[in-house]
């Protein structure tokens, strides 16, 4: 074989090896997640609250707490993110202010989540005098915000100008064109962004450590420390008790499945909505 061909085949094999490397890691993560997670899986996860050291129990309070934190933070981040994205999409492409805010939004998106936790700790936990579900909600909302902003902007930019012109031509005011025509047209795409931001914050642990903290009680009181899955998983996985470790793996499986479902929804939902609209 000529050296040229040899080099070529070695290179191609190396690239194949790289792809295989990623697949092996994914397979190993999923294998241990399913294997160890199913061992502790059962209905008791949803009906019993987190146990004390060494005893048995479930994750009911953590699951409910996580759902509340995630849902509320999305409720806060969505209107703000959509409005901010609208402003960015409406501004001139060359506008300096929009350019700067777009850049800052990117920086916020990649800011380490633990720093957002420290920020909310200083601003809310210290001033209100204690860890609370609200503090956790705000931290998660800050993490979801930049994702919603950037997808909203991208999706609104895809709305054809002719649609806006048709609206304006009928004498409709700008904000009505925006809310009733553009949001409707870009809606499925914006929905994808919201779902992706939800998938991102569901697994976030670091920002909750100093905001919502964790709790071993069943509570829906947002002004108190709040049980949540990620911090429970962290504490139980790091503990020496076997029953806690088992619960941590079950919780990890639960949270990963939830995130995968949201990710799938994020790609499937826009298609469903479009198909529904076309059918009408």
């Amino acid at each position: 074989m000529s050296p040229r061909k040899l080099k070529n085949y070695t290179f191609m094999a190396a690239c194949f090896g790289c792809a295989l490397f990623g697949l092996v890691i994914l397979a190993s993560v999923l294998y241990s997640l399913i294997g160890k997670g199913l061992a502790g899986f059962g209905l008791h996860l949803f009906t019993e609250i987190t146990p004390g050291p060494g005893s048995n129990g479930g994750l009911k309070n953590a699951i409910i707490g996580s759902l509340m934190l995630t849902a509320l933070s999305i409720v806060i981040a969505t209107p703000l993110g959509v409005l901010a994205g609208t402003w960015l999409s409406e501004s001139e492409k060359s506008s300096k202010a929009a350019e700067a805010l777009r850049f800052l939004n990117g920086m916020l998106m990649s800011a380490p989540s633990i720093l957002v936790g420290l920020f909310v700790y200083k601003v809310i936990v210290v001033t209100t005098g204690g860890f609370s579900g609200w503090a956790g909600t705000v931290a998660l909302a800050i993490l979801a915000l930049p994702i919603i902003v950037s997808t909203t902007e991208e999706m609104l930019r895809l709305v054809p100008t002719t649609l806006k012109e048709a609206g304006s031509g009928l004498g409709v005011s700008r904000w009505r064109v925006m809310t009733q025509l553009c949001y409707r047209a870009a809606g499925p795409g914006i929905m994808t962004g919201i779902l992706l931001s939800m998938a991102r914050i569901t697994g976030e642990t670091a920002p909750l450590l100093f905001t919502a903290l964790n709790s071993n009680f069943m509570t829906t009181d947002m002004s108190q420390p709040m049980a949540n899955l990620p911090v429970t998983i962290y504490q139980y996985a790091m503990s020496p008790y076997e029953s806690w470790n088992e619960l941590a793996w079950a919780g990890a499986l639960l949270i990963t499945v939830f995130i995968l479902i949201i990710n799938l929804l994020a790609t499937a939902l826009p298609r469903w909505i479009k198909a529904l609209r076309a059918a009408k």
Binding site: E204, P230, I233, W249, A252
Partner: peptide
């Protein structure tokens, strides 16, 4: 798609694994 799945796995899972 599988490689993108790797990105969706939360960091705490990587820690445990």
């Amino acid at each position: 798609m599988a490689i993108e799945l790797l990105a969706a796995v939360p960091s705490i899972i990587y820690g445990m694994w």
